Amino acid sequence: MPYRQAYRWLLMLFPLIAVAFWPGYWGQLGTAPFALHAHGLTATAWLMLLTFQSWSIHARRAHWHRTAGLATFIVLPLFAAAGPLALQGMARLWRTNADPFHAAFGSQLVIADMIAGPTVVLLVVYAFARRRDRERHAAAMLATALLVLAPIIGRLFARIPGFPHGGWAGFGGFRLALQLAEGLTLVIALNLAHRSSTARFGFGLAAFATAAQMVGFETIGRTSAWNNWVMLLTEIPSMPMALAAGTSTALLLWWAWRNPLAVLQRTREPAPPATLV
């Protein structure tokens, strides 16, 4: 099986997530809005499921692996449904100048999250359709974890004492920290995509999304036209957006599961059994 140590790397993300998002989320669970809960908990659930899938297949627990794979039909649509809620919540914090951080970066962060969320869904749909090709499937599934690296690393960079205009109490260095984190994520994704042609789509798409976030944050995200669109986002009813995102994701997963893409075999040996990372 490919990427035998992947689950170990995924496990390392959880303490980093706790530290990076402690001031903005985990440290204020009692007062955090519903949208933030929905996004934070579903994203964490997805990473936990991904980690378990990676471990179970390498531990030869195929039954657990398949069961966890089927759980994707629940976790991923919930994650997708939470996406518009989180975007709208961030947009409203920016619009109302609720705090200095969101007043400065809320509008630009909307464009970054608008790229990341659908990319995760697309990668998993591709992975489902390619589940008979173990490496393509594994690469696409694992590539979803790369899209959380930049938000984690960026927040950690910005809180390093002595970081330009940063420190635990400041956020002025967040822009530089986020771009450094995006750049590091891009290098990792490109390196993984370069290692194997069968992994190129999964990690390559993660690299493309990361580059699009970097460019969008500094260009489109800083225009008045974008700000006007973010203002409009705050006025769209929340539940129809969430329902549409969750339902469409579930339908795409079902389509990919029922219609796996054929894998060209170089030999006449039968195709390997279907697996999930």
Rank of each mutant, 00 (worst) to 15 (best):
residue 275 T to K: 11
residue 15 P to M: 02
residue 198 T to F: 01
residue 112 A to M: 12
residue 204 G to E: 07
residue 34 F to V: 12
residue 24 G to S: 14
residue 140 A to D: 01
residue 66 R to I: 06
residue 54 S to K: 03
residue 239 M to R: 14
residue 31 T to Q: 11
residue 213 Q to V: 13
residue 110 V to C: 08
residue 49 L to F: 11
residue 105 F to G: 00
residue 150 A to M: 11
residue 214 M to D: 10
residue 17 I to L: 13
residue 57 I to V: 11
residue 16 L to P: 04
residue 60 R to G: 01
residue 53 Q to A: 08
residue 244 A to I: 08
residue 120 V to I: 07
residue 113 D to L: 11
residue 149 L to V: 09
residue 63 H to T: 13
residue 252 L to M: 14
residue 22 W to C: 04
residue 67 T to Q: 09
residue 211 A to H: 06
residue 212 A to E: 03
residue 220 I to N: 09
residue 252 L to T: 09
residue 1 M to V: 12
residue 258 R to D: 02
residue 77 P to F: 02
residue 180 L to E: 06
residue 213 Q to A: 08
residue 221 G to H: 12
residue 209 A to M: 02
residue 124 V to G: 02
residue 268 R to S: 11
residue 206 A to L: 04
residue 172 G to K: 06
residue 148 V to P: 01
residue 265 Q to I: 04
residue 33 P to Y: 14
residue 66 R to D: 10
residue 33 P to W: 15
residue 249 T to C: 13
residue 79 F to V: 00
residue 41 L to S: 02
residue 32 A to W: 11
residue 272 P to S: 05
residue 105 F to S: 00
residue 65 H to Q: 15
residue 217 F to N: 00
residue 160 I to Q: 08
residue 68 A to N: 03
residue 59 A to W: 07
residue 19 V to M: 09
residue 30 G to A: 14
residue 25 Y to C: 06
residue 184 L to N: 07
residue 260 P to F: 14
residue 233 L to H: 14
residue 163 F to C: 00
residue 256 A to I: 05
residue 156 L to Q: 07
residue 16 L to M: 14
residue 194 H to D: 09
residue 195 R to W: 06
residue 199 A to V: 05
residue 177 A to M: 06
residue 134 R to Y: 11
residue 232 L to I: 07
residue 182 E to I: 07
residue 175 R to H: 14
residue 167 G to N: 06
residue 167 G to Y: 08
residue 122 L to R: 04
residue 147 L to W: 04
residue 163 F to Q: 06
residue 186 L to S: 00
residue 166 G to M: 07
residue 130 R to H: 10
residue 202 G to D: 00
residue 109 L to Q: 02
residue 189 A to T: 01
residue 143 A to M: 09
residue 256 A to K: 04
residue 167 G to R: 08
residue 183 G to P: 00
residue 48 M to K: 09
residue 99 D to Q: 12
residue 49 L to E: 02
residue 89 G to S: 15
residue 134 R to W: 15
residue 152 I to Q: 10
residue 200 R to V: 01
residue 163 F to P: 00
residue 252 L to R: 07
residue 203 F to E: 01
residue 129 A to I: 01
residue 40 G to C: 04
residue 178 L to I: 01
residue 25 Y to P: 00
residue 78 L to F: 10
residue 111 I to V: 12
residue 243 L to E: 04
residue 69 G to V: 00
residue 7 Y to V: 01
residue 45 A to F: 12
residue 192 L to W: 03
residue 235 E to W: 13
residue 63 H to G: 05
residue 209 A to V: 05
residue 206 A to P: 05
residue 56 S to P: 01
residue 270 P to I: 02
residue 105 F to T: 03
residue 190 L to K: 07
residue 12 M to E: 05
residue 82 A to Y: 02
residue 229 W to L: 12
residue 169 A to Y: 14
residue 130 R to K: 15
residue 26 W to R: 06
residue 237 P to V: 03
residue 59 A to Q: 07
residue 177 A to L: 10
residue 259 N to D: 11
residue 81 A to W: 09
residue 242 A to H: 02
residue 177 A to K: 04
residue 210 T to E: 05
residue 264 L to W: 12
residue 270 P to T: 05
residue 181 A to E: 05
residue 97 N to I: 03
residue 197 S to G: 12
residue 162 G to R: 11
residue 241 M to W: 09
residue 233 L to V: 08
residue 30 G to L: 15
residue 188 I to S: 14
residue 75 V to F: 10
residue 156 L to T: 13
residue 33 P to Q: 12
residue 265 Q to K: 12
residue 165 H to P: 05
residue 242 A to G: 07
residue 221 G to W: 15
